[in-house]
């Protein structure tokens, strides 16, 4: 049974929405609430994806004999072999995926801490430049260091849902991802409503106020950067698992730094509901554009993908000028909220 085009569209929409929601929540945590403009958001996301491109091969290597096949050099054959193994032993998936996730979260948290180091030392513009540079470095390494994730060609990764019958596989993936996003949303919402979350906003607005309250802004910043790094890496894991592959070229500034910024600014910063709305709106619009892309192809003397850049860049500028606080503006924080914390 082949899935209808509408169903594919819907499933893909849910999956992409879920992935971006997680990444955007993490960016909103550090930027919206924490005030750290992480222009290197792609760093954590790519790290998570790269973990998906390496760890499962390693772990399955312990369970079954690869027969001399190498993850990068004999990628397709090996993935095929592992997928067949997964189909027969579905229980292994949970272990492998859990290990992958834990490693990714650990790496993401670590990178978050690394980014926090300049974040506490440098002021606005220099910080932005440095974080942007961090994000570029990981891409350069990913593209050029072939053993990591296959260099310019990229690699396929084992399909963690190979055990699901083919006709359900696609939609199952979408809903698993949605479940991930739901859990992430609830966790972040709980966190931002907690005393620590309120403190975060206080640090962003006024380091001094926080010091007088007896909290160490540096510690709070480290904490939030670490959390955001972890969450970003989860986003990367989700994306790489969903597309069943890692291509370092794909982890660029447009898709994993700029787009999340657009979505949270359009939705409304420091506001989880705003992020939800902004993400949904954007993913739907983008999917629709891509969906109808084919009908435009050939009419224009250039590749339609460039219109995407044109539209996103232009839209972002217009939003900054005409609606700087987004669709759902941040609710002002009351003094008594802070005292409670």
């Amino acid at each position: 049974m082949a899935l209808s085009a509408e169903l594919i569209f819907l499933g893909d929409l849910i999956a992409i929405f879920s992935i971006y929601l997680v990444v955007n929540l993490s960016l909103n945590l550090e930027f919206g609430f924490g005030g750290v403009p992480n222009f290197g958001k792609v760093l954590a996301v790519a790290a998570g994806a790269f973990v998906v491109g390496t760890i499962p091969f390693g772990v399955y290597g312990l369970m079954l004999d690869y027969g001399g096949l190498e993850p990068v050099d004999d990628n397709i054959m090996l993935v095929h072999q592992i997928n067949a193994y997964i189909a027969e032993n579905p229980e292994t998936v949970f272990v492998v995926f859990a290990i992958t996730l834990i490693v990714a979260v650990g790496v993401g948290g670590l990178l978050g801490l690394v980014s926090a180091y300049p974040a506490i030392r440098l002021r606005g513009d220099y910080l932005a430049i440095t974080l942007l540079a961090f994000g570029e470095i990981i891409r350069i390494v990913g593209i050029n260091y072939t053993p990591l994730v296959g260099g310019t060609l990229g690699i396929s990764v084992p399909d963690m849902l190979s055990f699901v019958p083919n006709e359900y596989r696609f939609l199952t993936a979408s809903f698993v991802l949605l479940a991930f996003a739901g859990v992430a949303y609830l966790l972040v919402a709980r966190f931002t409503k907690s005393p620590v979350g309120r403190l975060l906003r206080a640090t962003r607005d006024d380091d001094l106020a926080l010091q007088t309250l007896g909290r160490d802004p540096v510690k709070v910043k480290f904490k939030v950067m670490m959390l955001a790094g972890m969450l970003g890496a989860v986003g990367g894991v989700m994306y790489a698992s969903y597309v069943e592959g890692v291509v370092a070229f794909g982890y660029d500034r447009l898709n994993w730094t700029f787009l999340p910024f657009v979505m949270i600014i359009v939705g409304g910063m420091a506001n989880n509901k705003g992020v939800l709305v902004g993400t949904f709106l954007f993913v739907v619009i983008r999917k629709l554009v891509i969906y109808y892309n084919d009908s435009l192809d050939g009419l224009l003397p250039f590749d339609i993908i460039w219109l995407d850049y044109l539209a996103l860049g232009g839209l972002m500028i217009l939003v900054l000028i005409f609606r700087p606080h987004g669709i759902i503006p941040e609710r002002p924080q009351k003094a008594k909220d802070l005292e409670k914390g």
Binding site: P37, F261, L310, L312, G313, M316, I317
Partner: peptide
């Protein structure tokens, strides 16, 4: 800064 990044994208 975001505006300059956006212009770059454009």
């Amino acid at each position: 800064i975001i505006a300059t990044l956006a212009f770059d994208m454009f």
